[in-house]
């Protein structure tokens, strides 16, 4: 019940805050602009392909799912990385700086309930964004001719991938927010941490090829590839779910440790 109460209050805070709408609006503005560009390019290619067919030359028609939808979602995967610090930075840092955390911990509420209530609220914002993102495949489906309709299994794989990535990034953001009372510091740590987590697969140490393999496997970007191609691999599910649990566990322990330190 406590988790549910915290979840509801947190969700209300998100949807009463203008910053949430600004973040979502910016993401969808950028996605919309990119969608328009890719669609124009797709129409151009389709037309050229038809003309070539009329001249008796064989050319494979462009695939709307691969070109348009995957392109737009690829951008969304990246934009999420930049939106998470803005959405997660206040979660615990604000409670600590304002002193409201003290009143919650005196209630019969475990640290885990508090963490989960806040985490699930942030993930719900992600679900809201993913639902909004369905506008793009729906638009393609609505205006598309037979043969140009989206491949829904691939779209489903993209949605699942987005949700898992959003959940893992949110857990990272919550962990950073548990470590400081300063919201700005929490946001910066989240942004740098998420960038490093995505780029760690690119670091190469020539003397230690095994280390390179481990770094690559631990990199967040390494596990987005399959979702973009419509492949649902168990290892990617396990990777993101375990990462989320690890970050949430660290967040709860950080809250606990604060009682010793202060």
């Amino acid at each position: 019940m406590a988790t549910w109460a915290i979840y509801k209050r947190e969700l209300k805070t998100y949807f009463q805050s203008p910053s949430t709408y600004i973040v979502i609006a910016l993401i969808f503005l950028l996605m919309g602009m990119i969608f328009q560009n890719i669609m124009a390019e797709f129409s151009d290619l389709s037309m050229r392909s038809q003309q070539m067919g009329m001249w008796g030359q064989q050319q494979q028609a462009p695939n709307v799912t691969h070109m348009v939808i995957r392109g737009v979602f690829y951008v969304m995967f990246s934009l999420i990385l930049f939106s998470i610090p803005l959405l997660s930075m206040r979660l615990l840092a604000e409670e600590k700086s304002r002193g409201t955390l003290e009143m919650i911990v005196t209630c019969p509420v475990g640290d885990w309930s508090l963490i989960m209530g806040k985490y699930l609220a942030l993930v719900s914002v992600g679900v809201f964004m993913i639902i909004l993102s369905s506008l793009f495949p729906l638009m393609v489906w609505y205006v598309g001719k037979p043969g140009s309709v989206p491949e829904w299994p691939i779209v489903g794989s993209l949605w699942i991938g987005l949700l898992l990535i959003f959940a893992a990034y949110s857990a990272f953001g919550l962990m950073a927010s548990s470590m400081t009372e300063n919201q700005m510091a929490a946001g910066v740590v989240t942004l740098i941490g998420l960038l490093l987590w995505n780029m760690m697969g690119d670091f190469q140490i020539e003397q230690f090829p095994q280390v390179n393999t481990i770094l690559k496997e631990m990199s967040a970007s390494q596990h987005t590839e399959n979702f973009l191609t419509g492949v649902l691999a168990l290892k990617d599910f396990v990777f993101y779910i375990l990462s989320s649990f690890l970050f949430l566990f660290i967040a709860s322990k950080t809250l606990d440790a604060r009682r010793w330190r202060v």
């Binding site: 209050r9 805070t13 009463q16 304002r98 002193g99 409201t100 003290e102 009143m103 005196t106």
Partner: peptide
Amino acid sequence: FLPENPYFYDY
């Protein structure tokens, strides 16, 4: 419990 300077969710 009532803390010394109670801070609430003012919204």
